[in-house]
Design a protein around this nucleic acid. Sequence first.
DNA 1: CCAAAAGTGTTACCTTTACACCCATGT
DNA 2: ACATGGGTGTAAAGGTAACACTTTTGG
Lengths: 259, 259
Amino acid sequence: MRRDLDELINGNSVALRYSDDNSPDDQAKYLIPLEDFFQFGLSVDCVVFGFDGQDIKVLLIKRGVAPYKSYWALPGDLVYPQEDLNGAAQRVLENLTGIREVFMQQIKTFGKVDRHPLGRVLTVAYNALIRVENYEPRAAFWADNVQWHTLSELGDLAFDHNEILAKGVEKLKVRVRNQPLGFELLPVNFTLNQLQKLYEAVLGQPLDKRNFRKKILGMNFLVKLDAKQTKDTRRPAQLYTFDRMRYDELTHRGFNFEL
Amino acid sequence: MRRDLDELINGNSVALRYSDDNSPDDQAKYLIPLEDFFQFGLSVDCVVFGFDGQDIKVLLIKRGVAPYKSYWALPGDLVYPQEDLNGAAQRVLENLTGIREVFMQQIKTFGKVDRHPLGRVLTVAYNALIRVENYEPRAAFWADNVQWHTLSELGDLAFDHNEILAKGVEKLKVRVRNQPLGFELLPVNFTLNQLQKLYEAVLGQPLDKRNFRKKILGMNFLVKLDAKQTKDTRRPAQLYTFDRMRYDELTHRGFNFEL
DNA sequence: CCAAAAGTGTTACCTTTACACCCATGT
DNA sequence: ACATGGGTGTAAAGGTAACACTTTTGG
């Protein structure tokens, strides 16, 4: 990876000017050694959302090592040299929860110069949605603890994780209205009341039951099952499932999900 | 920046397990030397949009150096070690156009292992909106040429820039409906017909003149000026300007821009 | 039989869409 | 005077929002 200056200039689009200076002499004084350009650290951090039937929760780890030892933090890790970003994010989640192929979307990249005390480490942040039923707590060896946290009860997190988390929540709120994300947080089979409670939790506002049902059923991608839920309810509730094939078909025809 | 293994383990959240293995022996064989984690290159690439009154254009440079010599590419550059991401993006744009404080938004980070032939280089992509009136073409020394391109007439770009550009366009289309971005592409004073043409170009569909005006004027953040535009038109057209103060005030009160 | 959650329609209101002609100016 | 782009209102249709009672079960 180490290359000499000549290769650098020919091999990368390094700008040699900070200002309007144009003469070769001026350019020379702005040259920066190549090795400085391959000194970036890279991590991924995951904002992992779950839904307990009542509230949206975020999965945090308690750091067992410095820096920020014993602070709560978003689960994350450095990216391996031969690993794609998505792959790294999936690996973090699999190590933490045992779940493969978690639903994830990139949020944003955080790159402040001083965001990590040990050097220049960028982090690519991801939103991850998991079904809590499938989740089996497992603290990684570098963490003292793993726990679900309610959004309203968060203290100071490690690094710039408060900022990252806030951005993740913001994106979730926006995306949940334009994409069928909600289903990733519920059991595969769910009742309409569960679905409504989920949307109310994410959006932070109550929804009208009849209007909600009219709208969501009118979209024609929920399948009524031959089963009812009897636990946790008095009158048994009709179970539904999300038909992704049908959804994809509809969207390709120009249909637009919007709650 | 270089640290030994012990510091690595204590100083960063490096996961030592790829799989479910837990014993210390198994862990050991997955250890990766620290220096590998600070070998990432980092660049920013800008999708620079302009509007010529008719079509949306993208500013591309023709690369003067390998790799991809003489391919068209998004303007971009490696990030300096002591420079924030936004700062790097602004620098690229200032070098290219002479404009400071360009309106920019992060699009996404592209990090495929093999996206850059010379090593592991991530790129953080930005959308930039500029007023073409202010732009004065200026090829950087590492570029043979700089030119506005129509979106429908693009060939194969360097690196993964076709993919990045497509993502930038997609984001622009979404955001222009939820945020008052359009005004960044027009002169400070503009006519409603110019504004409408802009939206039609971005969204790729014709809009009804009367409905468009009703809606946009109803939002109450356009200020009618005491001036008319007489060039390029028969009947002089009323000029308006975007009142950002008013807009911010409205949004803080719960108003929601949506076209 | 009572408590608790499930389920179900109608109406008023607001937003969106469709649509056609007159106006001011330059040539 | 005419060609060109600027400017204006209304009505029908569709979508959203408000609202209350009956049903089914477990205890």
